[in-house]
């Protein structure tokens, strides 16, 4: 009984590259379900259904990694992308996994959605600037606009007029993510 021992850097990826999976399937696996293991940390379903596979030229002598252009219908955190997405640049990552046909329902029946998160619109000023503005304008608690980053797959939205945001923005420390770390300090 031989023992297999891996040597080298550890990785967060688990699985195979896209070509390793699709190259062995009939019709290049069109219609099958593929997942990225990196995204399985989310509770909401993340999977891709293959629509089209385009094999690209490859010279193993020049470049050991093999890429393939795959057009997929992408579902990420329970949201189905309205347009098909082409995966090419990330197709070499050994992080894909093929889902057997009988297990596909486990992903497709998962109807969990991201709960709606509302971002705060305004934030208070830092202490010294606040004092200056108080002296100049006489406003007791001046507020400035929050500059949120714009992102193509942001699942949050800005608070509307008179709405209570679920994610508060403060100039202070905020509520700790791990209160254990602050035991005896705060």
């Amino acid at each position: 009984m031989s023992v297999v021992k891996y040597i080298g850097r550890t990785t967060d990826f688990r699985g195979k590259s896209l070509w390793e999976i699709l190259g062995n399937l009939r019709d290049y696996g069109v219609g099958r379900l593929i997942i990225r293991n990196k995204f399985q940390r989310y509770e909401e379903p993340c999977y891709m259904r293959i629509l089209k596979v385009e094999v690209t030229p490859h010279d193993p002598a020049k470049d050991p990694i093999r890429k393939v252009a795959v057009t997929v219908e992408k579902t990420w955190r329970g949201v189905i992308n309205p347009k098909p997405v082409t995966i090419y640049r990330t197709s070499y990552k050994p992080d894909y996994e093929l889902i057997p046909k009988e297990e596909e329902s486990k992903y497709t029946n998962n109807t969990k959605k991201v709960s709606e998160q509302i971002l705060a619109n305004s934030i208070e000023f830092p202490p010294l600037l606040r004092e200056f503005i108080r002296q100049e304008t006489g406003v007791k608690e001046p507020l400035m606009k929050v500059h949120h980053k714009v992102n193509h797959n942001k699942l949050t939205r800005l608070a509307k007029e008179g709405e209570k945001p679920t994610i508060e923005c403060t100039m202070g420390l905020g509520t700790p993510a791990s209160p254990k770390l602050y035991e005896g300090v705060l």
């Binding site: 600037l129 500059h147 993510a177 791990s178």
Partner: peptide
């Protein structure tokens, strides 16, 4: 835990600075 807290603090700081710069 530490990682989550550091990430939160980092994001918080970036948001504050970004807002201030914009202002």
């Amino acid at each position: 835990e530490e990682r989550a807290e550091l990430m939160r603090l980092h994001n918080n700081y970036k948001l504050q600075m970004r807002s201030l710069r914009q202002y």
